[in-house]
Computed example of a mutant assay.
Amino acid sequence: MLTLTDDAVTAVQDIATKADLPEGGGLRIARSPEDANGIVLSLAPEPVDGDQVVDSGPARVFVSPDTAPALDALTLDADLSAQAPAFSLHPTQA
């Protein structure tokens, strides 16, 4: 299952709060409709049926069923040094 760093948790929480998402809303990761190898990040008020839900404290990330296997051994990180966070995926450290 996808894991989140502390910075990613902070970024997801901040973005969800600024977007005024309802409680339980979060960041959704899904395959890009234009690029079969790409992914798209979007804000969602709730998971879509079949989404894998990653609850990490106050942050929630929803991973589409067709994307979840590819992200299984990865960690979502965020660079908080810029005005807007930059997300990246890295292999999960054992």
Score class of each variant (00 low, 15 high):
V63C: 11
P22D: 15
A78I: 03
S64D: 09
V53F: 06
L43P: 02
R60D: 00
P33K: 07
L2S: 02
E46F: 14
L76W: 07
Q93N: 11
S42L: 08
T92I: 00
G24D: 10
A73D: 14
A84L: 15
S88R: 04
N37K: 12
P58D: 13
V61M: 09
P47H: 11
V12L: 07
D14W: 09
G50Y: 08
T5M: 01
E46I: 00
T75I: 07
V63T: 05
D49P: 14
S32H: 04
H90D: 00
D7V: 00
T5E: 01
D6A: 14
D6L: 12
E34F: 06
L41H: 12
G25E: 08
T17W: 10
T17R: 14
M1F: 04
A44M: 06
L74G: 02
L89R: 05
P45C: 12
L21W: 11
G50F: 10
P33H: 04
A84C: 03
L4H: 02
V63A: 07
S88E: 04
V9W: 01
A94I: 09
D55C: 05
Q83A: 10
L2G: 02
H90S: 15
P58N: 15
L89T: 03
A94T: 10
A36E: 13
L27S: 09
L89Q: 02
R31Q: 05
P65K: 13
A36K: 08
T5K: 03
F62K: 13
M1W: 02
M1R: 13
L76N: 08
L71D: 06
Q52R: 14
T10G: 01
P91G: 04
Q52E: 14
A11R: 01
S88I: 08
N37V: 11
S81W: 03
P58Y: 11
A86M: 08
M1C: 04
A68I: 05
V54F: 03
T17H: 13
G38I: 04
V61W: 13
L27Q: 05
D7G: 01
V40Y: 01
D35T: 07
S64H: 10
L89H: 02
L27K: 04
P69T: 09
D79Y: 08
L27N: 05
Q83I: 03
V53Q: 10
A70G: 05
N37D: 13
V53P: 08
S81P: 01
D49H: 14
D66I: 06
A86W: 00
P69E: 10
D55R: 15
L41R: 07
V61A: 04
P45W: 11
A59E: 03
D6R: 12
L89M: 13
L80K: 03
L89P: 01
A82W: 09
E23D: 15
S81N: 07
D49S: 09
A84Y: 14
D35Q: 13
D14Y: 07
D55H: 14
V40P: 01
L4Q: 01
